[in-house]
Amino acid sequence: MLDTYTVRQDDMPQEMRFLLNHYPRDSWDAHPGFKEKTRHWLGAHQMFRRVAERIRLDTEGLLNNDMGLDGYAGRLSYYGGNLVGNLHGHHGWEDHSYFPELSAADPRFDAGLELLEQDHSELDKVLDDFTRTANRVIKLSALDEAQAYDEVGKVHATSEMIEAFLKRHLSDEEELAVPIILHHRLRG
């Protein structure tokens, strides 16, 4: 299952980070073109990172007997549904609204966009596997606790994979998009 995913290990190629040298991450907040819409977009990314981490930590808590199965199943349902639903919605909005705006403003974005779209496709596969496995654990928590515990290791491995994807993808996406936004004064 988990060996079928491709998480890029390298930074986005330098030619795709064309404006980042002019607009480094540590200067974004102070830039006059850094508006509330961009701040909210980055905030959504931070929320995804935190929720993915919460799922992994809760799973580790269950595996370490620091949490009961019933409490874990409820939290997995809540946080897992939140993460998957919001990531799908966020990526849909990016694909249909946000990315076309960036591409129209600066055609150089398109080279990075192809890489980001590949990430979205791979992440969708991981999220689908996570959803199936998490739902199985939630159902089994009421039917057969032993089987539920057998499946929890898969939830943990998949949650680690989600975190790895988000770490690589969101960082690259931010470092490609925000400099374009600042350079062209978009999202005002």
Rank of each mutant, 00 (worst) to 15 (best):
T4S: 15
S77Q: 15
R49P: 01
L62C: 07
A148T: 10
L20H: 05
D172H: 08
L63W: 01
L143F: 00
V155L: 04
S27Q: 14
R56I: 05
G33K: 02
E60H: 13
R185V: 09
M1K: 14
L62P: 08
V152S: 08
H88G: 07
L2M: 12
N86Y: 14
G188N: 12
L19I: 04
G85D: 07
T131V: 03
L87S: 13
W28V: 08
A142D: 01
L127W: 01
P100V: 11
R185W: 09
V155N: 00
A73N: 04
D26H: 06
L182P: 06
G112I: 12
A52G: 13
R136Q: 12
K125A: 09
G71S: 15
R50H: 07
A157E: 07
H40K: 09
F109I: 02
G81C: 09
N64A: 15
Y72M: 12
E122Y: 01
E122D: 06
A30R: 14
L57S: 15
E94D: 15
S121G: 04
P13C: 12
A111G: 10
I55H: 04
F165T: 08
L140C: 03
R8I: 09
Y23L: 13
S103L: 04
F165V: 06
Q9D: 07
R75C: 08
E53C: 10
Y79M: 06
D150Y: 02
H120M: 06
L182R: 04
W41Q: 03
K125Y: 01
R25I: 11
L87V: 15
F130G: 02
D106C: 05
L42D: 11
E173T: 09
V51R: 13
L116V: 10
V137R: 01
E53V: 13
E94V: 08
G92M: 10
L143Q: 10
L20D: 07
P24Q: 04
I55R: 05
F48Q: 00
Y5R: 09
E15F: 12
M1E: 14
R25Q: 10
S141E: 09
H88W: 10
V126H: 00
D150P: 00
M47Y: 15
H40Q: 11
D29F: 10
D110G: 03
A134T: 03
E36P: 03
S141D: 11
D95M: 09
D10H: 11
E173F: 13
L69I: 14
L123K: 01
Q14H: 09
R56D: 08
L123N: 00
T158I: 12
S159Y: 04
F18L: 04
K154I: 04
E122W: 02
D172C: 11
M12D: 12
H184W: 01
R49K: 11
L19A: 04
L83A: 03
M16N: 15
E15W: 11
Y5M: 07
N64T: 11
G33W: 02
V7M: 06
E36F: 14
E145K: 10
L76Q: 06
V84R: 07
L166V: 03
I180V: 13
D124H: 05
L116H: 05
D26P: 08
R39Y: 00
Y79P: 00
G68M: 07
H184I: 00
A52Q: 10
N82L: 15
H183W: 05
D58M: 03
